[in-house]
Design a protein around this nucleic acid. Structure first.
Lengths: 249, 249
DNA sequence: TCTCTTGGCGTACAACGTACACATCAATGT
DNA sequence: ACATTGATGTGTACGTTGTACGCCAAGAGA
């Protein structure tokens, strides 16, 4: 982790640790280096995909890399860095063709892609903290969304708030979808019906308290209980409609 | 954790473990019991409030309760139960007066209250998994929201999806607000300006790649960068407007 | 050739969740 | 009155975790 000199605006120079992201794109400085940020990130993602977020421990990662437990610490400052790296790596898959101009189509596409990505990498829903969005791939997404929203007469703050609102919804919705899915998987419940049957005693107790009459009344007549994709799109379209209203379109 | 008999619909009876929630409301079965679910939950919440999510370990909880490390396991099946208990406990603070009839006011009030609650108990943003919503207090919230949405010509599925969409947004938005806040706190950055100054090198590197021209252009002209409440309400109102559109109001 | 930097290794420690066997007390049936 | 039983708390112990710290070898520059 060598430091380098950097000029700041006032002609003074300071020593600056090259950031995780700067180092991520640099080639290995020596030939000996068998570990690189890229290899570390790839292995960690693979591990998480195969065995879940809990399996991502520094030791298991090290064995997967064929290396001693502490080796990765030369490249990564700790587990926080590791999650950030993993998060950025999978986020790099998200793109919307530059030819697409319609703001709504852009935001919608990113939202659906993000949900898919999170379902494909469920550990994204369990990462300790939904990390600071200052990673290259996240910035690229923000850039593309801003570009789509710009020029519709919205002030900067509203533009920022708008795409972040979509992001917040997507994250929240998918996170709870994942949580439910994992909960079912852990208990070996394969279908929604099986889940409801298993949870019936608890549900019955709660209902028998008589405190939730409306819920009882409507709960039964729902027909899309097991259609998370539909529910997701419903919510997503609500948010987009709200934004559209502000864009005056 | 005594089992009791329960009749199912077909006149057959099985042994059913009383659920966490059923036990939560029962008085202590013997006088000797110095530990109750209520006392455990209260201590855990207090611990988390004072020292953060990471401080909630079974051992620290035990010492706080003046009891041996393993004692709580008689009442709680593990750490998962504990989080659920804590989550339910703080959620019980959420209420909207029955006199309020307007659906939008109800949903909006719950959303703002939830954000406040999460900011007051930041560990809610770091709980391993945003737990299954089958707890008494969460059900009460759902009940109240459903009641407000009912009778506006929306089908059951849409009603469910609508209030869940709001919940997803609230969770996602507040979670990232908390993450940023904690990140700043950990680094001792007090103001937004101080944070930006500290993050400037990373930001500069990213910007100097030339990949984010739109972001660069608009990023500077934003004037509400440090007004999370405003941003939250902006997004919230987008979601509510989208729902309003579907209610035909 | 000698030195310095880089990168991987090995050991070590405190803290974690929780399994399991044990002890102790209150209530209960006789 | 007394033995029995179930509910509660205790004590010990194990395997696993994140990571601090010091060491050593391999390549780069002089």
């Amino acid at each position: 982790m060598a430091a380098r000199k950097e000029e700041d605006g006032k002609g003074e120079s300071r020593l600056v640790e090259p950031s995780l992201w700067e180092r991520l794109e640099r080639p290995a400085p020596t030939q000996r280096a068998s570990l690189t940020l890229d290899r570390i990130a790839a292995a960690a993602v693979e591990l998480a995909d195969e065995e879940g977020a809990a399996a991502v421990t520094m030791r298991r990662l090290a064995t997967k890399l064929g290396v001693a437990p502490m080796a990765a610490y030369r490249h990564v400052s700790g587990k926080g860095d590791l999650w950030a790296l993993m998060f950025d790596r999978v986020s790099a898959q998200l793109t919307v063709d530059d030819a697409v101009g319609d703001w709504r189509e852009v935001l919608r596409s990113f939202a659906l892609q993000t949900r898919d990505m999170m379902l494909r990498h469920p550990w994204l829903g369990q990462v300790p903290t939904p990390l600071i969005q200052l990673t290259p791939a996240r910035m690229a997404v923000a850039e593309r969304q801003l570009k789509a929203l710009a020029g519709h007469g919205l002030d900067t703050d509203s533009m920022m708030a708008a795409f972040r609102a979509v992001g917040a919804f997507v994250h929240g919705a998918t996170q709870s979808e994942i949580a439910l899915r994992e909960y079912k998987r852990e208990n070996g419940w394969d279908s929604g019906d099986e889940t409801r049957r298993a949870l019936a005693p608890q549900m019955n107790y709660l209902m028998d308290t008589g405190r939730y009459p409306t819920y009882r009344k409507y709960g039964l007549s729902a027909t899309r209980k097991d259609d998370p994709a539909w529910e997701f799109e419903f919510g997503l379209d609500c948010v987009l409609d709200g934004i559209a209203q502000r864009l005056g379109i």
